[in-house]
Structure formats: C-alpha cells, structure tokens
C-alpha cells in the first residue's frame, strides 16, 4: 500500500449472519484489492459473487470477519473514523427511489452536506456544482419523484458529490434504467472521473460498461479471479464463462469468427474496434 492507495482490502473475509444454527458460507474469501486514487474500476461477477459486499465494506456499513479494509489508511473497524471514512467514500445503490429523501431536487442534494454541518454558503456552492457536473442543474427546483430513472440516479450521484467524497462506489446503478438512462449515468461517471479526478468503482452486470473502465475486477464465488485492463480480462473467455459472465457482444462475435478461420486480431472489445478490424480484414489489409 502506498500514498496513492485509496481503498485497500487486505485478506478480507466476510460472512452474512444466518437465521438458523448453520452458518452461511463465506461471501468473501480472503480477498486482496488495492484501488488507487483516480482509477475507474469496474467490478463484475455473478449474483451472489460478493460484489455488493465489497461496496458495503468500502464505507464501513459492514466490517470484515477477518482481514482489514483501509480507506486512505483508515481502518474501517475504528468507529471514531466512521465519519471521515464516509466522507471519503460514498455509495450509490441500485434503486434510485430508495435514495431520494427530499421533495425538491436541490434539497435532496443538500441533505448530505447539511448533515456534515457545512456552512450554508458553502452548501449552496457545492449543490450547484454537483448538479452541474451530472447535468441536472436545470432540474434543481423539480420534484425528484417526477424525474426519469436516469435523472434520479444522477441526482443521487450529485448528493454524494456534494459531500465531496474522493471516491464513489456505485452498486449496479443502471440495473433499473432504460438505454438512455444508462447512457446518461455512464457519461456522468466518466466525466467525474476524467475531469474531476474522482475515483469511481462501478459494480455492474453489463459487460459494455466494464469495457469503458481503466481496470476490471472479476469476482467468482467470493474470490477475485481476474484483475487487469478490460483487454487483459476479456482475453480470458474461459474464466469469464466459468464466472457466469460473458464477453462483450463485439468480443464474442470476433471470437466466434476467429474460431471459424476469419483473420481478425485479438483484443476487439467495442463495436468501433470490430468495424475497423472487419473492414481491414475484408480489404485484404489494404484499407485502414
């Protein structure tokens, strides 16, 4: 762990409490993950693979059964640090309707910083800035329940931003959204990461969202089975398949074609890359 490390999981195991006498199996088994400041990391895995457990451990909602979780070096079991930890890592959950607390958009965004005891003038500025960065400033006087799913999720993200956390963990933020809503949330996340340097951890079931990350971590049955760039991770189709996942559509197609003797290069992940490779292949290598 060095100074640049924002989230650090050291040999972390976790087990949910059972209703009966038989204990449940471990949800996380001895995992080690370091997430650096400014990274955009996607976490993939089947339902029950431990992804959401990672999100909850990241801002002290739950504590490890064994091992340590450090947020900028702060041990999450230390109750005195809970406040500082939650000001460093904010979590956005799947269902936007469960995260909206106020009846006006800007009041909802102000809820977090108000609870931190911040000066009203400073809150005003933070709320405006946060709403602008997610593209929801024009809606600041609207009623949240009348917004679309994508808009509500962006308000939830703005609420975390107004607390000026350095890192946002999103647990399947697009699962309930339509294609446009998904696009809006992804664009907002990419902007926060690239323009404001906020560290983003995106937990998702969508492979095409993971392709847009700097780094992809694949979980399978409570363990980290792959950790690398999207190109590295998706060049392991067998492990991906075994983990209950699949390749991004373009990669799947390129793979199938290669198996049938079509000469396409390795590492195709996006529709744009596929189109370019296909044109090159058909032209017999004469076209760029």
């Amino acid at each position: 762990m060095n100074d640049n490390t924002l989230i650090s999981f050291r040999d972390v195991s976790y087990r949910y409490e059972s209703d009966t006498d038989t204990p449940l199996p471990l949800a996380l088994k001895n995992i080690n993950i370091d997430i650096k400041k400014g990274e955009f990391v996607a976490i993939l895995g089947h339902n029950g693979s431990g992804k959401s457990t990672i999100a909850k451990l990241s801002n002290a909602i739950i504590m490890p059964e064994s091992g340590k979780v450090y947020i900028k070096g702060m041990d999450t079991v230390d109750e005195k640090l809970e406040y500082d930890i939650r000001q460093t890592v904010g979590v956005v959950f799947q269902n936007p309707d469960n995260q909206i607390v106020a009846t006006i958009v800007e009041e909802d965004v102000a809820f977090g910083p108000e609870n931190l005891g911040i000066e009203p003038k400073e809150i005003r500025k933070r709320v405006d800035d946060a709403l602008k960065s997610v593209g929801m400033y024009d809606y600041r006087f609207h009623q949240p329940h009348k917004l679309s799913g994508g808009q509500k999720q962006r308000v939830a993200i703005a609420g975390i931003m107004a607390m000026q956390t350095e890192c946002i963990v999103l647990d399947e933020p697009t699962a309930m959204l339509d294609p446009k809503g998904r696009e809006e949330v992804m664009t907002a996340m990419q902007r926060l990461n690239k323009e404001l340097g906020i560290t983003v951890v995106l937990i998702t079931h969508y492979m095409d969202e993971a392709v847009k990350a700097d780094r992809v971590i694949v979980m399978d049955s409570g363990e980290v089975v792959l950790d690398g760039t999207p190109r590295e991770v998706f060049s392991q189709p067998d492990i991906i398949e075994h983990a209950g996942l699949e390749l991004p559509e373009s990669a799947k197609l390129a793979n199938e074609l290669r198996k049938n003797g079509v000469e396409l290069p390795e590492g195709i992940l996006t529709p744009e890359e596929f189109i370019e490779a296909f044109k090159f292949c058909v032209s017999g290598g004469n076209e760029k």
């Binding site: 895995g45 089947h46 339902n47 693979s49 799947q94 399947e172 699962a175 309930m176 079931h205 492979m207 209950g244 996942l245 699949e246």
Partner: peptide
C-alpha cells in the same frame, strides 16, 4: 415486467 432485470448474464 422486466423478468431478467438485475440478474447476471447466466441468470
């Protein structure tokens, strides 16, 4: 209504 929402690819 959205029978597969929130499930992993295999699900």
């Amino acid at each position: 209504d959205e029978p597969a929402a929130g499930l992993d690819p295999r699900g």
